[in-house]
Amino acid sequence: MDGHRGHRATRTYRDTVRFYLIDHRTTVGKGLDVSLLGLNLLFIGLFVADTYPLSAAQEAALWTAEVVIATVFFLEYLLRVYGARSRVAELTNPYTIVDLLSILPTFAVLAGPALPMWAAGLGALRLLRVVRVLRFFRFTRDEEFFFGTVSLETLRVMKLLMTVVAIFFVSAGLFYEFEHGVNDRVETFGDAFYFTVVTLTTVGFGDITPATQAGRFVTIAAILAGIILIPWQASKIVREWTHRDKRNVTCPNCGLEYHDSDASHCKACGHVIYQEHDSRE
């Protein structure tokens, strides 16, 4: 008991910050997960809503909400870097880089009037808004969720679905940014999303076609990403299914994992692994 108290007493504020940012079991950890998930959904919704005709009052309200959410995510970014055991590793972590890129366009627009030299680059920075959807991959980094623990197979299915959604959303967002104002068939994000779905599913109605060189490049990149990434994620699921009848035991001699349920020797090197098996099965 005293040792437990001593351990808690030695926990620093930095340790506490790191703990709650990765925790999924305590009330505070679950609350943070749900809040960040909800804010990310809203953040993406703001990007989509901004592509539709709005009144001046609605645009002002959406912009205020975007700034508030971006500020919250920036604070989260700072806390993750502050609480990390290795700040260099955290700064170079793909999840952390995506977190920063997703809020960069908002702050660039805020800083634009004060920094005229940035004005020419704001249009390019706005393209980064599409990476907001990639923030969801942070929620699939392990089997622990605020609602409980899922199997590795379920996690891989979630990653596959997230990959499909990300490909469609990012492709549609980039296509919209390049084609809007040039292509009279692409007026909203919905038009761009429709084109992306029809194209990547190989239906190809032909009612919307790219009008810019950048739009054509995005279409090609989206098709290639779909061909490469989706089968890659799907292969992980198939591989997991093929190992459902095997046990995750590692051979201490050669390191081979996943042996037959009744194996007593490693099938690669013959080393005895002493795996227990009920003869009644």
Rank of each mutant, 00 (worst) to 15 (best):
A9W: 09
R14P: 12
T16E: 10
V17F: 00
L21Q: 03
I22G: 14
I22M: 11
H24Y: 03
K30W: 00
L37D: 00
G38W: 03
L39R: 02
N40C: 12
N40W: 04
D50R: 14
T51W: 01
Y52S: 00
Y52F: 08
Q58G: 12
T64S: 15
E66S: 13
E66M: 15
V67S: 08
I69H: 08
T71C: 06
L75I: 11
R80T: 12
R80N: 11
N93S: 09
Y95N: 10
V98R: 09
I103W: 02
I103F: 08
A108K: 11
A111C: 08
A111V: 07
P116A: 06
W118E: 00
A120K: 13
L122F: 09
L122V: 06
L122Q: 05
A124F: 15
L128T: 04
V130T: 11
V133P: 03
R138V: 09
R138Q: 15
T140W: 07
T140S: 13
T140K: 10
D142E: 06
T149R: 01
T154W: 03
R156S: 04
V157T: 09
L161Q: 04
V164F: 12
F169L: 07
A172N: 05
G173I: 01
G181T: 05
V182C: 07
V182P: 03
F189P: 05
A192W: 02
F193L: 09
F195Y: 12
F195T: 00
T196L: 04
V198H: 15
L200V: 07
F205D: 14
F205V: 15
F205A: 13
P210K: 00
Q213H: 13
Q213M: 13
F217A: 15
V218I: 08
T219F: 06
T219W: 05
I220M: 11
I223A: 10
A225W: 06
I227Y: 05
S235V: 08
K236T: 06
I237T: 01
I237W: 00
R239D: 09
E240A: 14
C251E: 04
C251K: 11
L256F: 10
Y258A: 06
H259W: 02
C266F: 10
A268L: 14
I273Q: 02
I273P: 02
E276V: 15
S279K: 15
R280S: 13
E281F: 15
